[in-house]
């Protein structure tokens, strides 16, 4: 009996020690775990990260694995998953894909200094050596989409549906408005923030209200845009999107989409971590580093001549933004620049 108790005590102690000191991943497989607030097929923010991880998985084969916890809009739910992953010691990189997760990342990163964390969209690494931050200069693609919208609008009336006036959604919308104004100062561009990322019925009615007031071009950001896209399709309006490609859903209404290529950030992050740098750096997706891609819809209903003009415009505006000749937003309102690890 006493021997049994001794074994039990040793077992409990060993189990406790394992829990206290998470084992580092011991093989050559790079393992990533990520949480995101919405579904991986939202045609928007979460899908953009899921697509990037899937792309790396295909590229790196057996040397890469990832697990993805979607739909954790509630921060406490995400915190449970993040803590689990951090304490397991099985992951080389833990990603909190959502700006609402900042405080959780700050707390966990301090508690698990040997685990590499990344979060976004933000540029704050909390001065912790194991935290990387990432964001996107969404105003760049927003500017290009806005310029194209002004070019295609016949009524000079354009509507934009946003979720909440924060983060990359605000940058996109502000960039879009700036692009419209720079191209056609007489055009009217109205913005409705519906104060929700997922309220499809309200977003749909917001789009319908724009149509009723004469808008012939729509744009929007976040996962609730599936509703406004339907309105654009039904009423024969042009649609401009962001975050992920919405070409298939928008069909002939779709014109161009700003696509986030998080794989650009992830490649850098993986290389740094493999070299022993767990964090301390912030990354920004831009047109220049290939983190932002402007995709012209393959299903668009534009005629060939207009399509060629659209493609030329995208090319020239991209060049202008990269060279600095075009500044989508004043620096105070634009995305902060990336910062290297100190």
């Amino acid at each position: 009996m006493r021997k049994g108790l001794r074994f039990l005590a040793v077992g409990v102690a060993a189990f406790g020690l394992v829990g206290l000191f998470p084992a580092a991943a011991q093989d050559d497989v790079f393992r990533v775990a990520a949480v995101s607030p919405s579904a991986t097929n939202d045609l928007a923010f979460s899908q953009s990260m899921f697509d990037a991880l899937t792309m790396l998985d295909e590229e790196m084969g057996d040397a890469f694995e990832f697990t993805f916890q979607e739909g954790t809009f509630v921060v406490d739910d995400a915190a449970v998953a993040l803590r689990d992953w951090a304490s397991s010691g099985e992951y080389d990189l833990v990603i909190a894909h959502g700006s609402q997760y900042g405080s959780v990342v700050e707390e966990l990163a301090a508690e698990f200094p040997e685990v590499a964390f990344a979060w976004g969209t933000d540029v704050n690494t909390f001065d912790l050596p194991n935290v990387s931050a990432y964001t996107v200069a969404a105003e760049q693609g927003g500017y290009i989409n806005g310029a194209l919208a002004a070019m295609l609008s016949e009524s000079g009336n354009i509507g934009v549906i946003g979720p909440i006036e924060v983060g990359d959604a605000k940058l996109y919308v502000d960039g879009f408005v700036s692009g419209v104004n720079a191209t056609d100062p007489d055009a009217t561009v109205n913005v409705t923030y519906i104060q929700s990322f997922g309220d499809v019925p309200l977003a749909t009615e917001a789009a319908t209200a724009f149509v009723s007031n004469g808008a012939d071009v729509l744009s929007g950001t976040a996962q609730m845009v599936v509703g406004p896209i339907g309105v654009a399709l039904e009423d024969g309006l042009w649609w401009f999107g962001t975050q992920s490609s919405q070409a298939e859903l928008a069909a002939e209404s779709g014109v161009s989409f700003q696509v986030y290529r998080w794989d650009v950030v992830l490649r850098d992050l993986i290389a740094d971590i493999q070299e022993g740098t767990l964090g301390g750096e912030s990354y920004v997706l831009t047109l220049e580093n290939g983190g932002i891609e402007m995709e012209v819809s393959e299903f668009t209903g534009l005629d060939e001549e207009t399509l060629a003009t659209v493609e030329d415009t995208i090319a020239s505006l991209t060049e202008g933004i990269i060279s600095g000749d075009i500044v989508p937003l004043p620096s105070a309102e634009a995305t902060p620049e990336a910062t290297p690890a100190s």
């Binding site: 919405s38 939202d42 499809v200 019925p201 749909t204």
Partner: peptide, 10 residues
């Protein structure tokens, strides 16, 4: 809406 998405009713 003529579309479905997760938590459509919100």
């Amino acid at each position: 809406l003529d579309v479905f998405q997760q938590n459509l009713t919100g």
